[in-house]
Amino acid sequence: MNVLQALNGSLHACMAESEQVYFLGEDILEPYGGAFKVAQGLSTTYPGRVITTPVSEAGIVGLGVGMALRGLKAVVEIMFGDFIALAADQIINHAAKLRWVSGEKVRVPLVIRTPMGGGRGYGPTHSQTLEKHFLGVPGLRVLAVTALDDPGGVLKSAILEDDDPVLFIEHKLLYAKPVISLVESSEFSLQRSGERYPVYHLTIAGSPPPMLTITAYGYMAELARQAVQRLAFEHEIFADLVIPTQLSPFSLDPLLESLAKTGRLLTLEEGSHTHGWGAEVLAHAVETHGPRLQAKRLAARDMPIPASGPLEKSVIPDVEGVIRAAREMIS
């Protein structure tokens, strides 16, 4: 099973389990099933609760907020993550505020799913990683799935169990990746902590004590996993990899625990470098462990994402870059 199938299966399961779940988005009807096919089969199985919409990202997110306020569980698909900018007002000024402003009297159980990220040559407005702009918005939860463990389960929790608005980030390149179950891997030891939205802690099975802590989420976690493996087998550098599912509100205790052992932090993200997620991780790490922490941030260069393959590759972090940065930190 790949990540796409896991997410699609999860949507089917949610709609089967609760008649309150409504799915809205652009071009989501069969036989198309959405630009990335995550909605495949939904409109024929649940025709009354799957609504194909006009090209109105702000409008449909706002409608989802309204539906959530009135007893439904709305799932809104935004075709490309870049388009989330159009819905920023609805997310920041409405969805995220209502529960608090009402004095906890109302809830907004809304999930906004959207694919972010580059690697497919779509160019400056269809390849971005924009979630950093939504991190730290009080009242909004931002989640990013990986190929690890149970991505469908994370989506199901967000839809059926969460009372708060969730921005659910899916990286385009994850869809085709096979889901890696916790028990399958013989090379890694993979631990899961946290309840609804897990933090994964990955180490090379049977390795010496870790020398470095790497943290990444989403598709970058997959690159980091490959890097951790090669660092161990090709360079004898042993790293802990800590992968959060929930980016905001910030909660990364397993990372801080790992840093107590390694004293070295490497953050990896696909968003642009400055003012990014890694900066916040680093701030928490320094506040906890003090200025003697050695740290480095890897991220996309501070420029738009180009379309041409070689140009795009030069902007977004890759496995080689992670290995290089780790080696520099250890030497």
Binding site: L63, V65, G66, L69, Q90
Partner: peptide, 15 residues
Amino acid sequence: GTIPLAVGMALAEKV
């Protein structure tokens, strides 16, 4: 910003 919310609420009441 309130208008799509209002329409969403109306849709919820309708269904």
